[in-house]
Amino acid sequence: MKKVVVLVGPTAVGKTSLSIELAKELNAEIISGDSIQVFRDFSIGSGKVKREEMLDIPHHCIDILAPKDKFSVADFQKIAREKIDEISARNHLPMIVGGTGLYIKACIYDYEFSTQEEADEEIIKKLEAMNNEELVMELQKIDPEQAQAIHPNNRKRLIRALLIYEMTAITKSDQIASQEHKPIYDAFIIGCTMDRATLYERINERVDMMVEEGLLDEIKGLLAQGVNFDDHAMQGIGYREWRAYFDKTMTKDEVIEEIKKHSRQFAKRQYTWFNNQMPIHWVDMQEPDSIKQLKKMLETWRSEQ
Results as ranks from 00 to 15, higher is better:
residue 77 Q to W: 04
residue 78 K to F: 05
residue 84 I to Y: 00
residue 85 D to N: 12
residue 86 E to W: 01
residue 87 I to E: 09
residue 88 S to I: 10
residue 91 N to L: 03
residue 91 N to V: 00
residue 93 L to H: 06
residue 95 M to L: 13
residue 95 M to R: 09
residue 100 T to L: 05
residue 103 Y to H: 04
residue 103 Y to F: 09
residue 103 Y to E: 05
residue 103 Y to P: 00
residue 105 K to E: 15
residue 105 K to T: 02
residue 106 A to G: 13
residue 106 A to Y: 08
residue 107 C to V: 15
residue 109 Y to F: 15
residue 111 Y to R: 01
residue 111 Y to A: 13
residue 113 F to I: 04
residue 113 F to Q: 08
residue 114 S to G: 05
residue 115 T to I: 07
residue 116 Q to S: 14
residue 117 E to M: 03
residue 120 D to F: 02
residue 122 E to W: 08
residue 123 I to Y: 00
residue 124 I to T: 11
residue 125 K to V: 12
residue 126 K to E: 15
residue 126 K to A: 14
residue 132 N to W: 01
residue 134 E to W: 06
residue 136 V to C: 11
residue 136 V to R: 08
residue 137 M to C: 12
residue 137 M to T: 15
residue 139 L to V: 03
residue 139 L to D: 09
residue 141 K to R: 15
residue 143 D to L: 09
residue 143 D to I: 09
residue 145 E to V: 14
residue 145 E to S: 13
residue 146 Q to C: 11
residue 150 I to L: 06
residue 152 P to W: 07
residue 152 P to L: 06
residue 154 N to R: 04
residue 156 K to Y: 09
residue 157 R to W: 07
residue 160 R to W: 11
residue 162 L to F: 05
residue 163 L to M: 11
residue 165 Y to F: 14
residue 166 E to A: 14
residue 169 A to R: 13
residue 172 K to H: 10
residue 172 K to A: 14
residue 173 S to T: 15
residue 175 Q to E: 13
residue 175 Q to L: 13
residue 176 I to D: 14
residue 176 I to E: 13
residue 177 A to H: 05
residue 178 S to H: 00
residue 180 E to S: 13
residue 182 K to P: 00
residue 182 K to W: 00
residue 183 P to Y: 06
residue 184 I to G: 02
residue 184 I to N: 03
residue 184 I to K: 08
residue 187 A to W: 04
residue 187 A to K: 01
residue 189 I to C: 03
residue 191 G to I: 04
residue 191 G to Q: 07
residue 193 T to R: 07
residue 193 T to V: 12
residue 195 D to Y: 02
residue 196 R to F: 08
residue 197 A to T: 11
residue 198 T to E: 13
residue 205 E to S: 13
residue 210 M to G: 01
